[in-house]
């Protein structure tokens, strides 16, 4: 459905994520936003930092134990235990968090990302295992190979192997849903799911702000309301919801002048009334567009004709 593409958001935030529909048992398709490469890389780096911090923390504890006089453990046993724990941390970090936190590791949580099952439904433990065992080959193997190649021992075989391994690593760049090999095997996918807050209705705000002393609402004609479409309405909403600082007040004035010219509003709007005027215009325009949408007449934006 065309109205569900958030064009206003794309214009204002300048960010365009790929979208996909997820089919639910309730029969209502849900829109999901596929996570971008940058977001996923950031989350991964944050996770790596956490992991390395944990492992180095363990080293520090070991050193402290060694230098304390008690001599609780010998160096060799301590080292072995640490290596073992480091191994466990490395292999279980992603597994544990993705299972326990509904598909989110700390890094993913910070970046508002989440692993979900591609087919919809439960993210099964085996899917999480699959996508994380493959990580070893996709990321750590090429990384290890890369670090092990130096100028002298750059054997052709090694470079070829690195090339092959790296081909797997860059797989997410070459498919529409940014799947890496682990996602393919596990049947999973990473989506962006930032939490959203429900703000007040702008049309209600207009009512509540009204005090006895305020003048009457601005009233618009049919013709004036027939100029804009949903897209412009939602951009206006976005601008009206911005905090009232100098920059945004200036923006409102510019927008107000433009709208007045477009709809042929002849009376001058006093500067202190700009917001009220726009708010009234927004409310009337939304009422108009919602009503015609209810009758099946969707108007995408000002340049498209009314769909019947």
């Amino acid at each position: 459905m065309a109205t569900r593409i958030d064009r206003a958001g794309e214009l204002i935030e300048g960010m365009k994520r790929k979208r996909k529909e997820l089919f639910t048992p309730e029969g209502v398709p849900l829109d999901i936003q596929i996570a971008g490469h940058g977001e996923r890389l950031t989350a991964f780096i944050i996770d790596m930092v956490f992991m390395i911090a944990v492992i180095y923390g363990l080293y520090l504890i070991l050193l402290m134990l060694l230098f304390s006089r008690t001599g609780l453990v010998s160096f060799k046993i301590g080292m072995t235990i640490i290596l073992f724990i480091a191994f466990i941390v490395r292999n279980l970090y992603f597994l544990h968090f993705e299972l326990a936190w509904q598909g989110r590791t700390p890094g993913k949580r910070i970046c508002s990302l989440r692993v979900i099952s591609r087919a919809g439904g439960e993210l099964s433990p085996s899917a999480v295992v699959a996508r994380n065992l493959t990580r070893e080959v996709e990321i750590f193997l090429p990384l290890g190979l890369f670090l092990s190649i130096d100028a002298e021992s750059a054997a052709l075989g090694k470079v070829a192997l690195l090339g092959w391994a790296a081909a797997l690593t860059v797989l997410p760049l070459f498919n529409r849903e940014h799947l890496r090999a682990g996602d393919l095997i596990g049947g999973t996918q990473v989506i962006a799911l930032p939490k959203r807050v429900l703000l007040g209705d702008l049309t209600e705000q207009r009512m509540s702000h009204r005090t006895v002393a305020l003048p009457k609402n601005y009233i618009f004609t049919h013709e004036q309301l027939a100029i804009y479409g949903n897209f412009e309405l939602q951009v206006l909403e976005e601008i009206l919801r911005r905090p009232a600082n100098v920059e945004n007040v200036n923006l409102l004035t510019v927008v107000c002048v433009k709208i007045c010219r477009k709809i042929g509003w002849d009376e001058p709007v006093p500067p202190e009334d700009t917001r009220r005027f726009l708010n009234d215009f927004y409310a009337a325009e939304r009422a108009n567009l919602e009503r015609s949408q209810l009758f099946g007449n969707v108007r995408e934006d000002k340049s498209t004709a009314l769909k019947r």
Binding site: L193, E237, R241
Partner: peptide
Amino acid sequence: IVLDRNLLLYLENLTLRAYL
């Protein structure tokens, strides 16, 4: 029926989170 962008996005987000 709704053209309030904030409300639409909020509902999309909430239902997806609840679905998961």
